[in-house]
Amino acid sequence: MDGVHDMGGMHGMGPVKPEENEPVFHADWEKRMFAMNNAISAVGVRNQDESRHARERMDPAKYLGSSYYEIWLDGLIRILSEKGVISEEELSGTVPAKPVSIPRPALKGEDVDTVMDKGGNYIAERGKSARFKVGDKVRAKNIHPVGHTRLPRYARGHIGEIVADYGPHVFPDASAQGKSDPQPLYSVKFASTELWGPDGTEGDYIFIDLWDDYLEAPGDAA
């Protein structure tokens, strides 16, 4: 979706403001929010791309005015509500919590390190065959899917070069809709001046990880 989360290249955001000796968390509620969002992955009621897409669908004015973990709060409530796992009425306490059936058991405290050390897996054993190879010139398609996508707006329509083939990976656009559609993932190198024209810098490059479906041969552009 062409949302406010897709920020690459936007103007008017002001200076970057690093904080000296920044703590990992700034408040207790941030810790709990971080932990809930990670712990709940174990039960398998929503995947990572559904989770990301939920955050992207926050009211855009609120998104821009919210801190990071406020966005996580909004996104987690949104996706769990959509999945029928929780409701606003339960949250506000106007109705008692209804039991839910979950695909997998909740994460135990003693298993946290093992589970986090293992991580997830987004590499597919097989998928669509690669249409491109290292060295190929490709164009990022000028597409505007309404759902989740990892093709940033600033790359669309522009020509780059495949510099690595990372092999078949779960396709996030499909994954956010509960599907998989595994396909090759590439590292694509774009010249700064290709993306930003005269406002770019000659000799600088931007590397973007892009899936096969996002790309076309440069001559194929509509």
Binding site: F25, K31, R32, F34, A35, M36, N38, A39, I40, A42, V43, V45, V85, I86, A97, K98, P99, V100, I102, A106, L107, K108, G109, E110, D111, V112, D113, M116
Partner: peptide, 13 residues
Amino acid sequence: KGLVEAEALDALI
């Protein structure tokens, strides 16, 4: 609802 356990949240933090 049994979706998360407090001890796991503490351990993640």
